[in-house]
Design a protein around this nucleic acid. Structure first.
Lengths: 332, 332
DNA sequence: TTGAAAGCGGTACCAC
DNA sequence: GTGGTACCGCTTTCAA
């Protein structure tokens, strides 16, 4: 039998109300009885029923997290960041993977919602209209992480536009003039759009030619990297490529290897994301690294402190990480 | 303002009790009013408060999942398996990463427990005594996944003992006679013990010499793989190694590459786990693959159907996956 | 400072 | 078949 607040109250000879006050440290109570009550509580192995407490308080300490079933490479890092902060502040995370099937998506979110979550964090999610409608209709706080949404949903991400400048600047410095961007060709995720835009404008800034066909591949997966090399054939029409996700870059690297292209001598690769994956390749990938952990903890902080305006866009720092896949070449 | 069962009852001119029966499909009710009530419910945008329901029913639909912060490579796959099944059966997953600091561990589990979880699944976790005590003291159902525990906790995993036979048999067939096992040297996790035992007995079965020093490395991480190559130096005293986790195998492969050892010509590697990581290397890794997805869904099924005896040990199939890191050699 | 009591949103027993 | 109602475990006025 579970021990409740009433059991403690009986044992201590006081009312449940007092026990509640003591155990939650709210309101006034006698310090002496407090120590006694706390002792009894631990002695009896009391465990607060947080759901009951939430129900009574009409507010929840649970945060729902929506994670796409695919590319969860960096999601992990974000979740860890959130969790570290959440636990510190006594919040719980209800992490839910969400697949592409829309019907199941809605079901999933529905059950999250019926858990009375305080907020829902969307990790790198581009919600469908139906999903977005369901989400905004309910009055949970929404935060988009690692993706900006054009709606009234605040977001925390890297400055994807600036990040592309960082990357192109770096490649330019290394003498590269013909640069491809692999994996952000579709207009749909806002992130892809921002990256394309940053990429194009960074090229312009350096007076580099812009070849629309050098922006290729829409899916953020391994196959996109492999396929890109097959698509452009040997010799590649560019000297460097930006992989718009680590897994794409690994695909590029392996694809190049398969095609007899030597990296970085014949072809340079720089990756966007900078998860551990970039350290597992030979050579290790140059990369611009996002601070996923920070995104996660910022999200929780922002939620708790309510510091995020509905249309706020928060950026975390990105930094270049050295690797062995970019070579300095003589600008032609 | 949230719409409740009472609001619906008022609107429909019936009692909350009836609405509850209709919405949960329990007990008897008039089919006609049922459709009417359901229509009203959706029209008003009703969302069941599952926590309140759990409270009233004194039973929870939430399953807590404990995941170690490190090597989460295959944890993902297990979680997806659990989630697929869980949602089908209307259960929720409360996934929690657990770090090595014991104090924080206990806190984490405490808050899980106070969420009134139905069960706690431990993914590849070797609980400390304190943790185990806390867990068993509470009356939640426990299931260990991907790790066997010597206590009265049921487990679902691969047959680690048999798996090592599978691997050694394979290498033996390919002509290998001197085989190392990297990453299971410590006696502590039961899994490591079982693997070592299976490994040693499989060698004996084939009348192969057993070199205790060929079982090397205790941590399941990338560095262990790299370090193993440095430790044994060139030329390696064995012709093949078993990496006791994919990430170790990647370390072995890269370490070999760094040392100028050609895989598989000079040195064969076979990995244990078989996550996608094994497909990202060049050459791709041979591996014995565990069915993590199945472990996850089985766990949920077993929980719901209560088919798992306290000391049950459930095994899922493992299978050999071809790759490019094992070469047939002439037995010396 | 403390206690009685009224809920929070649902469920389930029991009578009608 | 349907409704009244007493809880589930905790919080929170409000009075004492």
């Amino acid at each position: 039998m579970k021990v409740t607040i009433k059991d403690i109250a009986n044992k201590a000879g006081i009312s449940p109300a007092s026990v509640s006050r003591i155990l939650t440290n709210r309101g006034r109570f006698n310090a002496d009885t407090a120590v006694r009550v706390r002792a009894i509580a631990t002695a009896m192995g009391y465990l607060k029923n947080q759901s009951a407490a939430d129900l009574a308080q009409k507010q929840s300490h649970v945060v729902g997290v929506l994670v796409p079933t695919e590319h969860t490479n960096f999601a992990d890092e974000i979740i860890k960041g959130m969790q570290a902060k959440a636990h510190e502040l006594n919040y719980e995370l209800l992490v839910t993977f969400i697949e592409s099937d829309e019907v199941r998506q809605l079901q999933t979110v529905q059950s999250l919602l019926s858990r009375q979550v305080l907020a829902i964090f969307m990790l790198a999610i581009d919600p469908s209209d139906a999903l977005l409608e369901m989400l905004t209709r309910s009055d949970v706080q929404l935060i988009s992480i690692s993706n900006q949404l054009n709606t009234k949903i605040p977001s925390i991400s890297s400055d994807n536009y600036a990040m592309m400048h960082q990357v192109v600047d770096f490649l330019y410095q290394k003498g590269h003039r013909d640069i491809a961007l692999i994996g952000s060709s579709e207009p749909d995720p806002i992130v892809a759009r921002l990256r394309r835009q940053g990429f194009i404008e960074a090229l312009a800034k350096h007076n580099l030619p812009y070849h629309p066909e050098f922006i290729w591949g829409d899916k953020n997966n391994y196959e996109t990297g492999l396929a890109a090399i097959k698509h452009f054939k040997t010799p590649l029409p560019f000297t460097a490529a930006i992989g718009s996700a680590d897994i794409i870059s690994v695909g590029l690297l392996n694809g190049a290897k398969d095609a007899g292209i030597v990296v970085p001598t014949d072809f340079s690769i720089i990756s966007v994301d900078g998860t551990e994956l970039t350290q597992l390749t030979r050579p290790p990938l140059n990369t611009v690294q996002q601070n996923f952990h920070l995104m996660g903890s910022l999200a929780i902080t922002a939620l708790v402190e309510q510091t995020l305006a509905p249309s706020a866009v928060l950026f975390t720092e990105t930094k270049l990480i050295a690797g062995g896949t970019v070579e300095k070449i003589i600008a032609s």
